[in-house]
Amino acid sequence: MNATIIDNKIQELQNNILMQLHHRTLLKYTGQPIVENETLFYLLLPFLNGEIWTSEQDEVSTTIGIIYTALHAHDQIDEVDATSKNQQLTVLAGDFYSGMYYQLLSKIPNIALIRSLSDGIIDISEQKTAIYEPTSRPITDWLHALTVIESKSIEQFMKHYHLDQYIPLVQQGLLLNRLAYELRILQETHMKTRIVAAIEKSEQFTSTKRSAERILEELVSELSSTFTRSISTSPFLQDEVKTLIVNRMPRIACEHQTTREG
């Protein structure tokens, strides 16, 4: 499967998601629902690797994408002031998307999957809220939180369809993307997001006193190496899929990996 076919498949999924979520007013005031291509890439990984992929899985992958858009919408709400029409409708957009994912799965019907995805959303909401708690936590806790936030819904999907062997790759790949994103934002804006501030605060559990940027660089570097190793040693990934994953790794991760290992 070449890169163009993969991009087309991701685009097709993206289009299905947007079609399901189309709502004139929401579109006007909140714009297109957002779902990252990289998230969809990992969601489709088993299919791209040649696993049997049923029409139900195709349909369900749309609902997983919808869950990501729903949760992402609520991440866009300002902590202090959400009184603008855009913000009010973004709150409702997230709720509407959640209702849509439930409705689509009800129509299939796949009640067991609704259950399992709800379990996942509970976990994600708990981890997202943890970032606002005043207590400090070790860095491993935050990495776990980010892993849950980024990959839990795809994990539930994979478990449901007995594709468990892909889960570690999804977790590492999406965590790496998130850390690389946080590093890029920090370097470009010099602003610490809440999660970065929490990670920096974790330094109190160690003897080192690294800056947030240094911590993120090291995390990205370590995770890049681990992920690259996981890909290259994977017994079930096809060679061309291995290459595709490596090629899609965030550039910032490749740079740090080269620096460190080189």
Binding site: L71, H74, D75, I77, D78, E79, V80, D81, A82, V91, G94, D95, S98, I121, I122, I124, S125, E126, K128, T129, Y132
Partner: peptide
């Protein structure tokens, strides 16, 4: 607001 969003989602 953000905690309220996550509480509602939960």
């Amino acid at each position: 607001n953000r905690v309220a969003m996550y509480t509602g989602d939960f």
